[in-house]
């Protein structure tokens, strides 16, 4: 069996005295799509943020694409390989859509302007809003903003994409347009870790679904199995509340 692209071993994380992660171990394979669900405060977002070191973990080990996340140089290398999409989009409000997508390409990847813009236009085409390149983020709907955020992350040619509740801040009618972009990405073989309660997406695209609670992984299974026939009492309880 080939090596996992993300290797997480016994990761422990505390916020002051509150435990957020209590010894998480998880391997994610290249091209795999993993959906993480769980009640708020279960540590699922924290785990995601540990993978690109937006949060530092206290104990354990995370290795991303063969690079251990333990030194400052490694972190910046890893971050260019790992794209992240946030619940609140976090587009740069002072920059046009096109500049949002080209900024990091130019100052981190050192791509020439023409090349970076070509990449940006191709990605805007891919997420379905090629005509919004010259708009400012505030001129876009939530769904459009999140699609720009996905394009911005993809512009760095990441090997892994992390999604932290990408549709939770969206109006219901805009959720599907973002999920469609994510589905296409999954079909293309992108390695994805998605924190989301969108069962439809999980069933259609995920290879594995994981339930976290109180800093532990409670259960992991095929999405159909986890959602319809869970083994664990806590999974049943959680699903009864969200379904």
């Amino acid at each position: 069996m080939e090596d996992p692209i993300i290797h997480i071993e016994n990761v422990v994380k505390h916020f002051d005295k509150v435990a957020a992660l209590r010894g998480i171990s998880l391997d994610i394979m290249r091209g795999e799509v993993v959906v993480i669900i769980g009640p708020s405060g279960s540590g699922k977002s924290t785990l995601l943020r540990c993978i690109n070191r937006l949060e530092e973990y206290d104990e354990g080990l995370i290795v991303v694409d063969g690079i251990p996340l333990n030194s400052a140089e490694n972190i910046n290398t890893v971050r260019t390989e790992v794209g992240m999409v946030f619940q609140q989009f976090n587009l740069f409000p002072h920059l046009k859509v096109i500049d949002n997508i080209t900024l990091a390409q130019r100052i981190v990847r050192k791509r020439p302007k023409a090349e970076a813009e070509k990449q940006a236009y191709d990605l805007l085409e891919k997420v379905g809003i090629p005509d919004k390149a010259q708009a400012y983020p505030w001129q876009l709907s939530g769904g459009q903003q999140q699609r720009v955020a996905i394009a911005r992350a993809l512009a760095m040619n990441p090997k892994i994409m992390l999604f932290d509740e990408p549709t939770s801040a969206l109006d219901p009618e805009m959720i599907q347009e973002v999920l469609d972009v994510m589905l296409n990405l999954a079909k293309e073989g992108m390695t994805m870790v998605v924190v989301s309660h969108e069962m439809g997406f999980a069933k259609a695209a995920a290879d594995r679904a994981i339930l976290m609670d109180e800093g532990y992984i409670i259960e992991e299974a095929l999405p159909e199995v986890l959602f319809t026939n869970p083994k664990h009492e806590r999974t049943k309880l959680f699903l009864s509340k969200v379904l």
Binding site: L54, M84, F86, I107, V108
Partner: peptide, 24 residues
């Protein structure tokens, strides 16, 4: 979130300050 988005794109702290935080 602005600093986090910039850092997650691989920008250094200084780059994130210079191009994302300070202009705002």
């Amino acid at each position: 979130g602005q600093m986090e988005a910039a850092r997650s794109l691989g920008m250094s702290y200084v780059q994130a300050m210079r191009y994302v935080i300070l202009p705002q």
